[in-house]
Simulated assay, not measured.
Amino acid sequence: MRAADPAGIGRALAERKRREVIRGDGRLFIVAADHPARGAVAVGADPTAMADRYELLERMALAVSRPGVDGVLGTPDIIDDLAALGLLDDKIVVGSMNRGGLRGASFEMDDRYTAYDVEAMVRQGIDFAKTLIRVDLNDAGTAATLEATARAVNAAAAAGLPIMLEPFMSNRVDGRVVNDLSADAVILSTAIASGLGNSSAYTWMKLPVVPEMERVMAATTMPTLLLGGDNGGDPDETFASWAEALALPGVRGLTVGRTLLYPHDGDVAAAVDTAARLVHTDL
Rank of each mutant, 00 (worst) to 15 (best):
R18M: 03
V69M: 06
D46Q: 08
A51N: 08
F107N: 15
D89L: 01
A129W: 11
R112E: 12
F107A: 13
T48M: 12
A63P: 00
K130D: 11
D52T: 11
A156N: 10
V135G: 09
V94C: 15
G71P: 03
D117I: 04
G39Y: 12
D136Y: 05
G26N: 06
V64W: 01
G100M: 07
G141E: 09
Y116W: 15
L137G: 03
T114H: 07
G86M: 06
D117S: 13
L62G: 03
E147C: 06
G141D: 10
L132G: 04
N154I: 10
L28H: 04
A152S: 10
R23K: 11
R38D: 03
M50K: 15
A45W: 07
G44Y: 08
A120K: 13
R38G: 07
M121R: 00
E20T: 07
D111Y: 06
V122C: 09
F29C: 03
N138P: 02
F128E: 02
K130N: 03
D111G: 05
Y113E: 12
E108K: 11
V72F: 00
L132A: 07
R99D: 01
A120G: 08
L137I: 10
V93N: 00
V43M: 04
G100S: 09
N98Q: 11
H35Q: 06
G26T: 10
S96I: 03
L57F: 14
A120W: 10
T142E: 09
V135W: 11
R66D: 06
V122L: 10
R134M: 05
G101C: 12
P76H: 05
R18H: 08
V64Y: 05
Y113D: 11
T75G: 00
V135M: 14
R112T: 12
A150E: 15
L102N: 05
I30H: 05
E20S: 14
N154K: 11
D90H: 06
I78R: 04
R66C: 15
L56Y: 04
L57H: 12
G104R: 10
R53V: 10
A144I: 10
D46R: 11
L137H: 12
A157T: 08
D46I: 03
D70F: 07
L88D: 00
A42S: 15
L85K: 15
V135N: 11
A32D: 01
I22D: 04
D136W: 12
D111A: 12
A157E: 14
G101A: 05
R134H: 15
G74D: 06
R99F: 02
D46G: 02
R112H: 08
A33H: 07
A143V: 14
A120Y: 04
T145H: 13
Q124R: 15
D139E: 13
L102K: 14
A45S: 14
V93Q: 02
A156T: 06
G86H: 06
R99T: 02
A51D: 14
N98E: 09
A140W: 10
A32F: 02
G26A: 09
F107T: 14
V122E: 11
L85M: 15
T145K: 14
V72P: 01
L82G: 02
E55F: 04
R27G: 01
A156W: 02
T145G: 15
Q124M: 13
K17I: 05
A115P: 04
V69G: 02
V135K: 08
H35N: 02
V94Y: 00
G68L: 06
M97G: 00
